[in-house]
Design a protein around this nucleic acid. Structure first.
Lengths: 316, 316
DNA sequence: CGAGCTTCATAACGATATGGTATATAAACT
DNA sequence: AGTTTATATACCATATCGTTATGAAGCTCG
């Protein structure tokens, strides 16, 4: 005999509260509705659910047993409602994040931690990739947000871009690098030291090539490549190697006093760091909230970044 | 946001089977009904529950999470259905049994055990009492069945009586009692031995008084009283004490070879053993089934009891 | 890559169930 | 007994359900 789930929930509420009126109130229903449900249930079952004529309403064995199952449904229903509410406030769900390694590690990871203090129910799945991977992943619905620098976004790509920061690269080095002591750095100084090559496919690699072109120098000595961001930092700490990094990364790592940037200016690419997202997708609130958080965090950092830029890069 | 329990169950079925069609079949619904439910849920939530345009239907994070809760409800619902079915077949529930001690212990307890082999889900709550207690308990709905001997049932008491056995008392004694060796027992023999008094208020006590009246003897020596049935049996085993017992009790205990009955005939009360029940009560199937089982068991025993009666009491 | 099959979405409609308000009835309290 | 509270009933409006019919979208296989 199949029973309507809702009926069992109503029964559970009545048994729990010990009264039809209170049970109805608990569910936000009127008393007659619940009363009728019980009457109908008893009629269908052919068995009484309550001992009649006792005011402290007393369920029969069957009534109590069925109410137990109803109670399970009731609590599942309550949890489901909470889940939906949480989800709608971005308090539950998953944010699938993809991005270029240095930004993700130096800046985004910390922001994820901050974000989750306010949204503890949200899980973040992080993955790495450069623009082509990220846009493919977005279109295939493998990630919700791509964090990457971008030159120009094609119209009709189905993606939207939310700018976060103007890209600004620097020549990074360990904090005890000899060149930091020089009054004025010239191209020849730069090629005198070993270099760390940015990962193949990364914007930083093409940026590096453009810088070398601008400097008019030929080849540099690449002594290390392929390491993840933390490897690169640790390598720089221990050597006099140089590499190209986004300034914001150096900024984010300033507290560690492990790496810094050379006070050396060069033409910057017309590029912006930002969040890449699907244009026409239903956006989960958690994703919205995360994007908003990242945007706000960068907004708050903007003047600090600017000050650091001036202090470090131009030695102000 | 409150969600209809049934909708979540449908969602769970779809997620579980991986298809709207199969999910609908699982619940015995038509595919469009479920399809519409899902569409309505998504509209209400403002969030998709499934990633569109993938054939192995893939739920979103929210869809999966809600389906989990729905799954809980679904299984609770299934269990509730089973419970009801069991209950209707007398396979679940409680039988609250009250009765006079000797019958309950010697005969009914064994029948409860038999009954539960076929109805393992039924619990039996046993209590003791004599007719006044039992009818009060029945009317107050503290028990479902009273097992007791009864002379005449008042009309209008609201109770019904189902006869099981004609009452037949015997003088019980240990199997090695000296009187068993005598050819013919007379009144003087009976008062020569110590007696066990039946419990105050019991029919057996008034039966005993009537027997003494009939015998024309005055007082007997009461040496023991107040014991439960097992005490009485053990006492008789170890002494030459006599007492009045229903023959059926002696019959039920015949296998133990501890007690038996004296071949001594006396007038029997016009009384029947049977099941006392509320006349106008909705009867739980388990109670019905138990009453039927007891009736059948006694029916099966009837000829054995008769044979035993003839063999023991009249020494046939 | 297109034909064919399966599965899902939508529409329309009748039947039913549900929930509300108003009210009658029954139980409990004092 | 009278008052108060709780439960049952009556009736109406509406949401939902389940059905059939039909169109659209994916998957499969040659």
């Amino acid at each position: 005999m199949k029973l309507d789930e809702r009926h069992l929930v109503q029964l559970a509420a009545v048994v729990q509260t010990g009264s039809v009126t209170e049970g109805a109130a608990l569910l936000g229903l009127a008393q007659p509705a619940v009363s009728r449900t019980l009457a109908m249930l008893e009629k269908r079952l052919g068995e009484p659910l309550f001992h009649k004529g006792r005011r402290p309403l007393e369920p029969t064995a069957l009534g109590r047993a069925l109410a137990d199952h109803g109670q399970i449904m009731l609590s599942a229903s309550r949890k489901a409602s909470e889940l939906v509410d949480d989800f709608r406030h971005g308090q539950a769900g998953v944010v699938r994040l993809g991005g270029v390694p240095f930004f993700m590690d130096a800046l985004i990871a910390g922001m994820v931690a901050e974000f989750q203090q306010a949204h503890p129910g949200v899980r973040v799945d992080q993955s790495y990739g450069y623009l082509p991977d990220l846009s493919a992943a977005l279109l295939a619905d493998r990630i919700d947000i791509g964090v990457c620098p971008i030159d120009i976004l094609d119209e009709g790509s189905g993606l939207t871009f939310q700018e976060i920061l103007r890209a600004h690269n620097v020549i990074a080095c360990g904090v005890s690098h000899p060149l930091l002591l020089k009054r004025r750095i010239i191209a020849a100084d730069l090629i005198a030291y070993p270099w760390i090559a940015p990962p193949p496919g990364s914007p930083l690699l093409s940026d590096l090539h453009r810088i070398l072109l601008w400097l008019g120098v030929g080849e540099i000595r690449v002594r290390y490549s392929g390491g993840s961001p933390l490897s690169v930092v640790n390598y720089m700490k221990a050597t006099d190697a140089l590499t190209v990094l986004p300034h914001s990364v150096v900024f984010a790592l300033r507290k560690d006093k492990a790496i810094t940037a050379l006070p050396f200016d060069f033409p910057q690419p017309e590029r912006k760091l930002g969040l890449l997202r699907l244009a026409e997708a239903p956006r989960a609130p958690a994703v919205e909230a995360f994007a908003a958080h990242v945007g706000k965090s960068f907004e708050n950092l903007k003047h600090l970044i600017k000050r650091h830029e001036e202090a470090v890069v131009w030695g102000a």
